[in-house]
Every structure is written in C-alpha cells, then in structure tokens.
C-alpha cells in the first residue's frame, strides 16, 4: 500500500465518519471531529513557528540562514511577549500594548483605503448617465434600476421620519431590492455548500472507490 492510497483511505473514512452525523450523533463522528480539532491546532502551531516566527523573526534577530543580525527585531519580540502576557493574570494588562499596536497600525493603514475602495469608488460607480450611446433600452433600464435601487435602499435606512406616503413607498421599494439581494446571496451560499459536497463526492467516487476496483475508468 502506497502512502497516497493510505492518504486516500484516511480521507475517505474520515469523510464518512463526519457525514455519519447526518444520521445521528455517534462515536465515529466524535472521533473525526476531535481528530480534526487536534490536528488543526497542532498543524497551525508548527506551521506558524517554522514558517512565520523562525524566518521572519528568529533568523533576522540572530543573523541566521543568510540574514544579517537585526537587533530591532527585539521590538516585535517584546510585543509578542506582551501578547502572551494574557496567560498570566497578574501581567495580563501588558497585552494591551500589543493590541494597541495592532489596532493602531490596522486602523491607520486601512481607514483611508477602506473609505476609498468601499465608499467613494462605489458612489462613483453608482453615478451613471441614464442614457449612453449604444447602451440601448437594456442599458437604460439597468442604470435606472441601479439608481432607484440605491436611493430607495438608502431611504429604507433613513429613520428620522416615519415611513409614510412617498417616503414609505420608496422604503418599500428599498426593502424589496434588499430582499432580492439577500435572495441572491442565499442562492450563492447554497451553491457554495453544494459545491463542497460535490468536491467530496468526486473524491469518494473517483479517488477512493477506484482503489477497491470501482469507477476505475473515471478516476480523476
């Protein structure tokens, strides 16, 4: 038995163990679930140490693996220790220093970019001419729905006046547009979940079953 076949069998048996939950909770499911949680935690600890901590910090601090020694690396090391201070209640407050650094850098870096990308550029994309040369009736309707949808959607979230009369009618159009958006989002979510099931079904049918002589001609 090769390592590849062993891997396929492990994957298939664990997949079946996990899907057995659909019938009812059982020890096979519990075993696979706990194995997954334990393996994930172990994998991430080792991955982070060897692929993040050692090449980005340890090697640079001590000048290993072709890097020149950089004593400035003591600073991120200090902040990392501060983060770990949460484990010890007496010094847990020091972790705020590291969190403040992360929040400050993150906010400073993202605030303007986020506003530009997700607000200003979107507003610009909404301001469209209703009639463009060559756009035709379809283009006109598309632009109209976009503008009406955005305006009515915003009116729905305007709470300073009661939603009555024209304001109420516009808010109703707004909530209808929102429902269409939620429906599209739900449809895409269903498609994603089914896609994952299809992926595992393809694995079981065309990778696992051929190892026991079934669907051999269809192996992926």
């Amino acid at each position: 038995m090769t390592w590849e076949i062993l891997g396929i069998w492990l994957g298939a048996l664990l997949t079946l163990c996990l899907y057995s939950f659909l019938y009812r909770d059982n020890p096979f499911y519990k075993f696979a679930e706990h194995l997954f949680v334990g393996m994930s935690a172990g994998y991430w600890v080792i991955y982070t140490i060897f692929n993040v901590l050692i090449p980005n910090w340890w090697n640079r601090l001590f000048g290993l693996e072709g890097e020149s020694s950089d004593l400035l690396m003591i600073i991120p090391g200090f902040f990392a220790l501060c983060m770990l201070a949460r484990i010890v209640p007496k010094v847990a407050g020091y972790s705020r220093l590291a969190l403040a650094m992360i929040v400050g850098c993150g906010a400073g870096l993202q605030m303007v970019s986020y506003l530009q990308t997700n607000a200003l550029a979107q507003v610009e994309g909404t301001i469209l001419p209703l009639t463009e040369p060559g756009a035709g009736v379809g283009g006109f309707l598309n632009a109209l729905i976009l503008v009406v949808g955005v305006v009515c959607g915003l009116i729905y979230f305007f709470f300073s006046k009661p939603h009555k009369g024209a304001l109420g009618a516009s808010a109703n159009v707004g909530i209808t547009i929102l429902m269409v958006a939620f429906g599209a989002s739900f449809g895409y979510t269903v498609m994603a979940r089914i896609s994952l099931l299809i992926g595992q079904a393809q694995f079981l049918l065309f990778r696992w079953l051929p190892t026991i002589g079934l669907f051999r001609d269809s192996a992926l």
């Binding site: 994309g125 976009l146 958006a181 599209a184 989002s185 979510t189 896609s195």
Partner: peptide, 23 residues
C-alpha cells in the same frame, strides 16, 4: 460562491476586470 455577491460591486465600479464566482 458565498463571497461572490460582496465582490460584484467591484465589477460595477470597474475596480475588478472580471470575477469567477464559485463552481
């Protein structure tokens, strides 16, 4: 596919040149 609807606005505004959504 789950995240495709949230990226469609980037197409309308020209911030993305194209997008493949899900399977």
């Amino acid at each position: 596919a789950v995240s495709a609807p949230q990226f469609y606005p980037y197409l309308g505004s020209g911030q993305m040149v194209g997008l493949l959504g899900g399977l």
